[in-house]
């Protein structure tokens, strides 16, 4: 079982309090009706599924209830860091092999971006 640091509660809690929320930093297109099927597939279904460093969302569902992001190694399952929603994707390229590609997609106003400042 993982021990997960919630950046809002500022403490490590057991995985039982959390729900995994899929990949982080995926921007929902702002013009959903206009995008092609390929673009929708890319946004909605296709994932890197990396062996190594992954950026993912967690929700502290049995705690503060808030979404946050974390960087974790998918081989050792060890967390590198967790950070509040809306904060930019940290540059961990020095710490881990450069398997991650830089985020090149056009970033719209994401749910995460607005939620980070919510009270």
């Amino acid at each position: 079982m993982l021990l997960i640091y919630c950046p809002y509660c500022e403490e490590e809690r057991s995985e039982l309090e959390f729900r995994h929320g899929g990949d982080a930093h995926i921007a929902r297109p702002t013009n959903m009706a206009d995008i092609t099927d390929e673009e929708f597939q890319d946004f909605f279904f296709l994932r890197d599924n990396p062996k190594g460093l992954i950026f993912e969302r967690w929700r502290h569902i049995h705690g503060c209830g808030r979404f946050f992001n974390a960087a974790r190694d998918t081989v050792s399952d060890k967390f590198v860091m967790s950070y509040k929603a809306g904060e930019p994707k940290p540059d961990l390229s020095g710490a881990t092999p450069a398997t991650e590609k830089p985020l090149t997609e056009k970033v719209g106003e994401t749910h995460e971006a607005t939620e980070g400042t919510a009270k």
Partner: peptide
């Protein structure tokens, strides 16, 4: 388990 992993193990819970 609920999270992506290549660890070939899993949570005790």
């Amino acid at each position: 388990d609920q999270y992506n992993s290549y660890s070939q193990t899993g949570g005790l819970q």
